[in-house]
Design a protein around this nucleic acid. Structure first.
Length: 232
DNA sequence: GCGACAG
DNA sequence: ATCTTGTCGC
């Protein structure tokens, strides 16, 4: 089942308003919890696909059993595009539809894995942090690109990592999930420690560079977008 | 002012 | 993100 959502009342309309929201919500991020252990409970991947020309956005949430990485639930939602893509303001483009997909799950998501950043963000409040604060749930971000941050290339073996730096501040970690393959960029979202976030990223990558959560969510939201767009 | 910039 | 075929390699 795919639910349909509109743009929430009071949603920021300008970049200035969006940045103000980030500055306010940032105060509510919780960074002193270790978070659930890898392999325990459930892990949920969320992702979003767009058709800007037709003003359609589709989100997917896929729940995996953490111990086996088996899919136990999934849901999708479609809506209107709620914000343009602006580096640093990605959350305003993705969150309304993602929340709808999570709500359609009908069960607790456990740890949420986002396709993007948490603390590794110009104002230390990326998508994963934002989604964490809004849901109260533990979240982490696993991104495919280093954005503006710097890092030394991790050693070749899977599991190697090096600090992801904003100047001299460690805002995340470049983590090798496959031998000799480009690392992923892990950062804390809400209620999870960085070491534990990296442990989760490794537990979710038994076969591919990207976590099973984001691979499943990516495939599902693309399918939902195709189907939502086919009838137009 | 110019370029770079998660998805 | 998205537009897009074949191709090199394990």
């Amino acid at each position: 089942m795919t639910t349909t959502v509109g743009i929430p009342a009071g949603w920021p309309a300008t970049e200035e308003q969006a940045r103000a929201v980030q500055d306010e919500l940032r105060e509510r991020v919780v960074l002193d919890e270790r978070g659930p252990e890898p392999g325990a409970g459930h892990v949920t991947g969320v992702d979003v696909a767009y058709d800007d020309a037709r003003d359609v956005v589709a989100a997917a949430a896929v729940v995996l059993e953490a111990a086996t990485l088996r899919v136990v639930a999934e849901a999708t939602a479609v809506g209107r595009i709620s914000f343009p893509y602006v580096p640093g303001l990605l959350a305003f483009r993705e969150i309304p539809t993602v929340l709808a997909a999570l709500g359609a799950l009908g069960r607790p998501p456990g740890l949420i894995v986002c396709d993007g950043y948490g603390l590794a963000h110009p104002r230390r409040f990326g998508l994963a942090s934002h989604l964490g604060v809004l849901t109260g749930l533990p979240t982490i971000g696993v991104a495919k690109n280093p954005f503006t941050f710097t890092y030394d290339d991790p050693r070749t073996p899977r599991g190697s990592a090096s600090p992801l730096l904003a100047g001299s501040e460690e805002v995340g970690r470049a983590l090798r999930t496959r031998d000799g393959v480009k690392p992923v960029y892990v950062s804390v979202g809400h209620r999870v420690a960085l070491d534990n976030a990296c442990a989760h990223a490794l537990a979710l990558t038994p076969a591919y560079r990207l976590p099973e959560t984001t691979r499943r969510a990516d495939a599902l939201c693309r399918r939902a977008l195709r189907e939502a767009t086919a009838a137009l």
